[in-house]
Amino acid sequence: MSVRRLSWRTIVVLVGSVGSTWLSTSAFGQGAGADEAAVTIDGEYGYGLPPDVSVHGHEIDRLINVLHLFGFITLVGWTAFMGFCLVRYRQRPGRGATYKPRIKPVHIYFVVFIAVFELILDIGFSNPVLATAKQKLPTEKDRPIHVRVMAEQFAWNFRYAGPDGRFGRVGPQHVDQVMNPFGVDPDDPNGEDDIVSGELHAAVGRPVLCQLSSKDVIHSFSIPVMRVKQDVIPGMRIPMWFEAASPGTYEIACAQLCGNNHYTMKALLVIHDSEQAYEEWLASKAASELDDEEFDEDEFED
C-alpha cells in the first residue's frame, strides 16, 4: 500500500540527508515548513499570477488579463446601471412604473458586442496559444530535452534517456516501486543507461518535451510558473512541452484529485542556468546510478 511505500522512501531519504523531507511524507499537514527549510523556491509569490519563467507563458497571462479587464468593466457597468435604476426608480407615492418603456436598442448592441468579443478571444487569442501549447511540439531541430514522466500515487518520476539517447522499453510487470518505478525492461539494452530522478531538471534555452503517463489513476501535471498543465491518464501517453526562460528551482504540482495524499504529490523543477550545468547534473546522476546507490547526495543540496 501507499503508506508502506512512503515509509520505504523515508528510510532511503534518512540515510542520505538528515530527515529533510521526513515531515512532508509522514506527518500529515506539517510538511510545508520543513520542506521549505531544505529547498528554496525561487520567485515572488502572492495574490496574483505567480512569476512566469517560461518563454510562452506571457501569452496565457495576456489572455487572462484581457479577460479580467473585460469582465471587470462589464461588471462595473452592469452594477452601475442597476444602482442607477434602484436609486432613480424606487417606488414613491404618486409615481408608477412605465408599462413597456421605449428604449434605445443598447441591449442588442451589448449582446452583439459580447458575441464579437468572445469570437475575437476564441479565434484571435485562445486558438494561437492553444496551437503553440498542443501542436507545435519541439522537433529534433530545437534540441529538446526528452523526459518521460511517470505519475503514481503520490509521486512524480522522471526518466532521461542517458548517453545513448534512447529510452528503454517499459512494462508494468517490471515495476518495482523503489528500484524501478518505471518498470524498465531489464533485458532492453536501451534502458541500461536510463536515468531516473525524482526531480525534473532542465536548462534555459532548451525546450523540454515530456511524455506523460500514469501507473494507477488520473493525475494532472501542473507547473504554475511555466503556465502548463496536462492531465495524466493511465493507458495513454500524452506529450507536453515548455521552455524555461530563467533558471531557478520551482514546484511541480498534481492538480487532479488522485487519492488521500493527493496534496503531497509535489516535485521539484530545477532549471539550470546553462546547458553545461544541466549536462553535469545528468552526468553525476548517471554516475551515481552506476554506483548502484538508491539515492543521490546532490539531490538534496539544491
Binding site: 512532508s24 509569490y45 505567480p50 498534481c254 496534496y263 503531497t264 509535489k266
Partner: peptide, 15 residues
C-alpha cells in the same frame, strides 16, 4: 490565479 490546485488537503505544502 496564484495557481493553487483544488481539492488539496493542505495547500501550504506548496510555496
Amino acid at each position: 490565479m496564484a495557481g493553487v490546485s483544488r481539492r488539496l488537503y493542505d495547500q501550504t505544502v506548496y510555496t
